[in-house]
Every structure is written in structure tokens, then in C-alpha cells.
Simulated assay, not measured.
Amino acid sequence: MADSFMHALETDQQAYFEQLRATIKEYDTDVVEKVADVMSSKNGLVYSQEGVFKYALTRNKHHFSFHSMVMYANADIYQLTGDLLPHVEQQKGCINYKSIEHMPLQSFIELIQQSARKDFSPVIAHYQKKS
């Protein structure tokens, strides 16, 4: 399923992204993974809950990104992201980083653990109402 995304990465990046994927799957068991376009990125790893976008991992020409609707919808997760990851470019619902060293696995684990604990049902209800 994720082959098109993973094969576009360098070998050391593949191992790193496998760890990110495993983290999401371990701590947020409500999500389903698929490969899809995200913003301007082709073939990102997209994680949805009840058909609503929740997270994505993408690779662009100049950087990597982690997109999070949980971060977008929860100010405390947004703050936690900035605290855990001081070397990334943070936006409202995503972070961009030029090197995998800028997003240490332990920080990502903490971010996903906290994100998975958040009640995502209001976001699901909002977006399901729109469709």
C-alpha cells in the first residue's frame, strides 16, 4: 500500500519513515492508512479516522512534512508540537523539516501518543456534516 511513498525515499529515510508509520499504527489504532495526494505533495501516507483526514506524512522536493488535523483543532497539541520539535517550521496544521534529525523519533512518539488521546469525534462530525 505504501510502496509508492516508501520507494521514493533514500534507504536511511525509509527506515525512519517505517518507524513513524509503526508509531502511528501502534498508538492511534483508529486510523486507516492509504497513499494519496496531500496539498501539493504526491503519494503521501494519509491516515483517516471514520473517513476524515487525521494525519499525513509527505515528502516534497526540499523538505518532509507531518500534517495533523489534531494539531490544527487543539491548541495544546499545537503548543506541545512547538515544545517537542524546536527545529521544525511549524504551521497551524503541519510541520516542515529539512532533515529527519529535526524530528527525533521519541518526540514524534510523544506527539502521537498525546494526539491519539484527544477526542477526534467533533472533527469527524464537522467534516461528515459537510459532505
Score class of each variant (00 low, 15 high):
65 S>R: 11
57 L>S: 03
77 I>R: 02
52 V>I: 15
66 F>W: 14
65 S>G: 13
77 I>D: 00
70 V>M: 05
72 Y>G: 14
51 G>E: 13
70 V>K: 03
89 E>F: 04
55 Y>S: 09
87 H>Q: 04
54 K>M: 15
78 Y>S: 15
55 Y>F: 12
56 A>G: 11
67 H>A: 15
78 Y>W: 15
98 K>T: 12
93 G>E: 02
88 V>M: 08
61 K>H: 14
89 E>L: 09
56 A>K: 08
102 H>D: 13
80 L>C: 00
67 H>E: 08
92 K>H: 15
71 M>N: 07
58 T>H: 06
75 A>Q: 09
99 S>N: 09
52 V>N: 08
81 T>Y: 01
65 S>I: 11
96 N>C: 05
78 Y>I: 10
94 C>M: 15
67 H>N: 14
84 L>C: 02
79 Q>P: 08
99 S>D: 09
63 H>D: 13
81 T>H: 04
83 D>W: 01
73 A>V: 01
99 S>H: 07
79 Q>A: 12
51 G>N: 13
65 S>F: 11
53 F>E: 07
96 N>K: 06
51 G>S: 09
50 E>I: 11
75 A>V: 12
96 N>Y: 08
72 Y>S: 15
59 R>H: 14
52 V>R: 07
78 Y>V: 10
101 E>R: 03
74 N>P: 01
85 L>E: 02
81 T>L: 04
53 F>T: 05
90 Q>M: 04
84 L>Q: 02
93 G>C: 01
88 V>I: 08
66 F>Y: 14
93 G>I: 02
57 L>N: 01
74 N>W: 02
49 Q>T: 08
49 Q>S: 10
101 E>Y: 02
76 D>T: 06
94 C>S: 15
59 R>M: 14
49 Q>A: 04
91 Q>D: 12
88 V>T: 04
100 I>R: 04
68 S>N: 07
76 D>L: 09
98 K>D: 09
68 S>H: 07
88 V>R: 03
97 Y>G: 01
76 D>G: 06
86 P>C: 00
59 R>E: 14
51 G>T: 14
